[in-house]
C-alpha cells in the first residue's frame, strides 16, 4: 500500500501515526511533508527508523519549491509527478494521511 503524507513532521503527528500504524509498503512525502526528508531536521530519526519497513519517496518539485532540494536525506528516493503516478499504479491501493 502507498501511504501519502502531506504535513510537516514538526507540526503534525501524521508521519508518526502512519509509521506506527501502517503495516509497511511505500511512503510518499508531498507538500509540507517533504521537510521530513531533509538532513538534520528534528524528526529525522522517525524516517530513519521507518526505512526498514517502508520504502520512502519524496516529491522532488515540492522539496525544491521549499529551497531544500540539496538537503535530501540518504535513503529517500526522489520522484517527480510521473513517479508519483507510478507509485499509485504499482501499489494495490493508496491512503492519504490527511
Amino acid at each position: 500500500m502507498l501511504h501519502i503524507i502531506n504535513k510537516s513532521p514538526l507540526t503534525s503527528v501524521s508521519l508518526n501515526s502512519c509509521v506506527n500504524t501502517a503495516a509497511g509498503g511505500d511512503i510518499l512525502l508531498i507538500e509540507d511533508a517533504v521537510y521530513a526528508a531533509t538532513k538534520g531536521n528534528a524528526a529525522e530519526a522517525v524516517l530513519q527508523a521507518a526505512m526498514g519497513r517502508f520504502k520512502v519517496y519524496v516529491l522532488m518539485p515540492d522539496l525544491e519549491a521549499r529551497g531544500l532540494g540539496d538537503r535530501l536525506m540518504a535513503g529517500v528516493n526522489a520522484v517527480d509527478y510521473g513517479g508519483f503516478v507510478d507509485l499509485t499504479s504499482n501499489n494495490k491501493s493508496c491512503q492519504s494521511w490527511l
Binding site: 500500500m1 506506527n20 500504524t21 501502517a22 503495516a23 509497511g24 509498503g25 491501493s93 490527511l98
Partner: peptide
C-alpha cells in the same frame, strides 16, 4: 491494536480520509 489496524488497512480496496 495499531498492528491489527495496519493489517486491516492493507486489506482495503479503497481508503478514504478527509
Amino acid at each position: 491494536s495499531r498492528a491489527e489496524m495496519g493489517a486491516l488497512m492493507d486489506e482495503q480496496d479503497v481508503v478514504l480520509s478527509f
